[in-house]
């Protein structure tokens, strides 16, 4: 079943053409890794999927719901209906490289914020669910702690709990471990791996090649604003078709 479909996404910043037509289809349970060099547009593509960046062109469908666009007056497209956009965003949970937990709220408050104030879930119920999720990512003890008092790994696990709290149709991860000290990467990858194994639909931008190879069933290599190579991880990593991909992968050894 198709959860997320993006077709021919283009994005330019001024004169800089960052995306020149990138497409992707995620069916339920798919884990798709986006890899590529720095500046190849991975984050931009991810941020186009939930319209944090206005795409210049292309189509996006989430759970059969095609986002209606209109020109935004700066050469890009903006969502025509804010209601539709908010509905879709609320179910496309994003996990950021720099965590972006709301710093004036405790961990639990972070987790229940969107369910209560965006989705209209009853507060009591949201708290119960939030505590369950914090338990799951191993942060129950930290539920009343502010983000500033948590390690990077704890913050990112908290951010993942926040993402799970909206019962996402698909989860968007933008380099979730890049800002972490090496010894904290493992605890976050472990949580993401469990999510992959339980059949969550995920789009994962990452520089952790062996992890991408392990958890994903599809890998996209972005270069020059296009998908240069794509396929199952065994193929993409084991037998790269493009010269550039081979060189890119070589740089990790």
């Amino acid at each position: 079943m198709e959860m997320l479909h993006a077709d021919g996404i283009r994005k330019t910043f001024g004169n800089l053409e960052v995306l020149r037509g990138v497409s992707l289809t995620a069916n339920k349970g798919d884990v798709i890794s986006l890899i590529g060099g720095s500046g190849s547009g991975k984050s931009t593509f991810l941020r186009c999927l939930n319209c944090l960046e206005h795409p210049t062109g292309g189509e996006i469908r989430v759970d059969g719901d095609a986002i209606a666009f209109r020109p935004d007056g700066h050469g890009n497209m903006e969502p025509a209906s804010k209601t539709q956009m908010r509905r879709i965003r609320a179910r496309l949970a994003m996990v950021f490289q720099s965590f972006n937990l709301w710093s004036h709220m405790t961990l639990l408050e972070n987790v229940i914020e969107a369910p209560v104030h965006v989705l209209g879930v009853d507060r009591k119920q949201a708290v119960d669910e939030g505590l369950r999720l914090l338990q799951r990512v191993g942060l129950y003890d930290k539920r009343n702690t502010y983000p500033a008092f948590l390690s990077g790994g704890q913050q990112q696990r908290g951010a993942i709990a926040r993402a799970l709290a909206v019962q996402p149709l698909a989860m968007l991860f933008d380099e979730p471990t890049s800002a972490l000290d090496p010894e904290l990467v493992g605890e976050v990858l472990k949580v993401i791996r469990e999510l992959a194994e339980e059949g969550r639909t995920m789009i994962l931008v990452t520089h952790e090649m062996s992890f991408a190879r392990d958890v994903s069933n599809q890998v996209l290599f972005l270069h020059g604003g296009l998908v240069e190579d794509a396929g199952p991880p065994a193929e993409v990593f084991g037998n790269p078709k493009s010269e550039r991909l081979a060189r890119f992968l070589g740089s990790f050894h």
Binding site: M85, R89, M94, A114
Partner: peptide, 16 residues
Amino acid sequence: KGQLDAARAYGMSGLL
């Protein structure tokens, strides 16, 4: 900016 990005990404309106 990341804090506001997160708010938008979770479907909050401008006012919220």
